[in-house]
Write a protein that binds this DNA or RNA. Structure first.
Lengths: 345, 345
DNA sequence: CTGAAAGCGCTTACAG
DNA sequence: CTGAAAGCGCTTACAG
């Protein structure tokens, strides 16, 4: 292993000077700089990041702004776990994380959490930008302070996040359609129900629907796709009456639920004793998995939210500690989960 | 951050003594040991692994015994890439890896490579135990020298590997059957072709077939499953005549190929202009992906071989550097890849 | 513009 | 049984 000391000896300079050259710090004459650079190249020297972080003795704080997981919607517990695991991994690099959780159905709580982060003097921020308008405003403060931030799960292209980690929603809907397509006949009809609450705060859901419809338009225009908006996600009676109406109107063979609330539709099918409906939904929360196990849900499309959290923190840590610039976006896996692989996907 | 120095001060001892206690090294009186342990607990002290590896100044060598990727079968290029990435990650922990590649169709080359590893004085070995009998013999030498080893991709339960990383083959076949099942009718017939070469060196393939058949026996016994052994994987004429015979005999609606040679079956279907056959196979090699794109293959079942290599090395590195004992086995994902998610799964 | 020296947190050979 | 000191590879405040 070549060390700074080796390089210094070869170049007839002190280790301090080599260090200055490596990090492009000022105060080295052009001549010695070129000389040292040549020797570094010749020996294919690479700095020992371990020794470097130890010597730097610098610590970094990352603020994390994500929704709190609730019993109705536990989706966000997965990114949280991933973030906690990553935090453990980077602890020895003196990087710490602090959570600022908000209620994903309450924009005020988002604004409050965001303001707390702004006061906290963080070196970087990981954000699930659930509320678009608020995010546009609040990230300006980060931009002004030159604090880097990364979006997970939801992308807002117009802003200055140094990276985005999340699924290509259109593609995932397109995939959902393919899966539906292999299960139904040319003359069948498919229902796409949307819950009001979801649509308000997640543009991704519309993209999923777009992807789903595009597939059938391109490949099987004979299949009829119909939409319905269910006005209240929290009231099962409302869900029931909305769906009852749809089932009266048309002869539905399949349902594509573009959100993690798939289990609510399953619950309806189960309680109304409607059989032989092909059902495709999103995300492996406990409720969904139960209906997957019961064969009421056929396929769940997933995005590995654990990894979104984990990679988000790792990426920011690498950026802070090793000055490693991330790619502009990382598309998460589009994973298909069935009853048969639900324990290993 | 609490350091050894802090603990030493509180305990009125030197840092050396604290270090001895932390690592359970001998030469500390019971009394001081208990005292120091108490203080460590009180302060929730955890050792800084970065400083530790730097001070230890110890290096480790991992030998890697996997098949070489060939143009016909590039599967093993993925684990190799994962191993190379992991090697990069752990370089600063002074862990290095060396490849010993063998021809997966030539047991002699396996034995030779293995012997070279035994002579190389490695601290740990990562093995793809393609040849069962040879592995049983050769690992005895590792056992005798107390050199830890991990199996990837192929499991041999009877041996003393400290861990296994790979897919549950039975389950993957079971999943394949589910996918086939949603695409075919009750009266349809399914063909399961096996290539001679494959069966010789991979028990996993039989397990895949077992899983596939079990599903239909349990859920849809009306579907007829037939086998055929194709005697030569390298001669397309042989493949063609074997399959021609099968297609004459029965009315095949679907084919399940339990190996990564799926593309050979696709080639047959394409060249013979046989349409509307549902085709499910294994692994995302370039050839398979091309037929997936052309809609000739419907589903590929994958095991993320990149991660198998990556995690195998990481696990061994953690074991060597941090003394972290791994679990006995890690089941890789069983991933479903379609034309629609082939770029992100 | 350059070097000598102290320090990051842990480990260990040596002395007592 | 215990401590003082040197060292792992890099960084930096200080002196010149």
């Amino acid at each position: 292993m070549t060390t700074i000391k080796d390089i210094a000896k070869k170049a007839n300079v002190s280790t301090g000077t080599v260090d200055r050259v490596i990090h492009n710090r000022p105060g080295v004459s052009k001549k010695t700089k070129a000389h040292i650079e040549k020797i570094i190249k010749e020996h294919n020297f690479q700095i020992n990041t371990i020794a470097s972080t130890l010597a730097l003795n610098k610590s970094y704080k990352i603020g994390v702004l994500i929704p709190e997981a609730s019993s109705e919607n536990e989706f966000w517990s997965e990114p949280k776990k991933g973030i906690e695991k990553a935090t453990e991994d980077i602890k020895n690099f003196r990087v710490s994380t602090s959570f600022f959780l908000f209620n994903q159905f309450d924009s005020q709580s988002y604004t409050t959490a965001f303001s707390n982060i702004l006061e906290g003097e963080f070196d970087a921020v990981l954000i699930a930008p659930v509320f678009q308008k608020e995010t546009s405003q609040l990230t300006q403060a980060l931009d002004k302070k030159n604090i880097p931030y990364v979006f997970i799960n939801i992308q807002i292209n117009s802003l200055n996040a140094i990276s985005f980690i999340g699924q290509d929603s259109f593609k995932s809907g397109y995939l959902g359609a393919k899966l539906m397509s292999v299960m139904i006949a040319d003359t069948d009809e498919v229902l796409v129900p949307v819950f009001r609450l979801n649509t308000d705060n997640n543009a991704g859901i519309y993209e999923r629907i777009n992807g789903f419809k595009s597939y059938f338009e391109e490949k099987r225009p004979s299949v009829k796709i119909s939409n319905t908006v269910i006005p209240d996600v929290n009231n099962f009676e409302v869900i029931k009456s909305s769906l009852d109406k749809e089932f009266e109107k048309t002869n539905i063979a399949g349902i594509f639920v573009p959100s993690s609330s798939t289990y609510l539709i399953s619950k309806y099918l189960e309680s109304s004793n409607i059989k032989n409906i092909r059902l495709i939904g999103y995300d492996t929360n406990q409720e969904n998995l139960q209906y997957l196990k019961k064969d009421i849900i056929d396929f769940l499309i997933c995005q590995n939210p654990y990894l979104q959290g984990f990679n988000g923190i790792k990426l920011l840590s690498d950026y802070l500690v090793m000055n490693k610039m991330p790619e502009g976006k990382y598309h998460s896996a589009i994973t298909i989960v069935t009853r048969e692989n639900m324990e290993a996907y």
